[in-house]
């Protein structure tokens, strides 16, 4: 059965691109969210197998959303996505429970490889 992924990014462009990459690789898109608050709420609703989570977002940052998701579901498998320059946040995200980091702009092969690794634990 296809794994369900939730995509979180405030940019529609980024969500669309990621969605196309993931669908092409056989994932099912559980839901999409455009800010941190929505991400937490939708996570609880659809309980996806994987989450791609942007960092710079309105209402609640990706790091804050990650903390709340992990507090709700310690087994959540969240991959952080962010543009170049946010590497400094890797430590904070890892500490909060992020399983991996993907840099934007998205490289389809890299995205699918990282997600596959995270999915397989």
């Amino acid at each position: 059965m296809a794994l369900k992924v939730m995509i979180v990014d405030d940019s529609l462009f980024m969500r669309k691109m990621l969605r196309d990459i993931l669908v092409e690789d056989g994932y099912e898109i559980a839901d999409e969210a455009s800010d941190g608050v929505e991400a937490v709420a939708k996570y609880k609703e659809c309980l996806p197998d994987l989450v791609t989570l942007d960092i710079v977002m309105p209402n609640k940052t990706g790091i804050e959303a990650l903390q709340e998701i992990m507090a709700y579901d310690a087994g959540a498998r969240v991959v952080m996505c962010s543009a170049i320059g946010q590497e400094a946040l890797t430590a904070a995200a890892t500490e909060a429970g992020a399983k991996a980091f993907i840099l934007k702009p998205f490289n389809p092969e890299l995205v699918t490889r990282v997600l596959r690794e995270v999915a397989q634990g």
Partner: peptide, 17 residues
């Protein structure tokens, strides 16, 4: 060196989908 933006309440965001 840009840390994430902290919470913003009423700032308008482009309407997504």
């Amino acid at each position: 060196a840009a840390p994430p933006a902290p919470e913003a309440e009423k700032a308008k965001e482009p309407a997504g989908e």
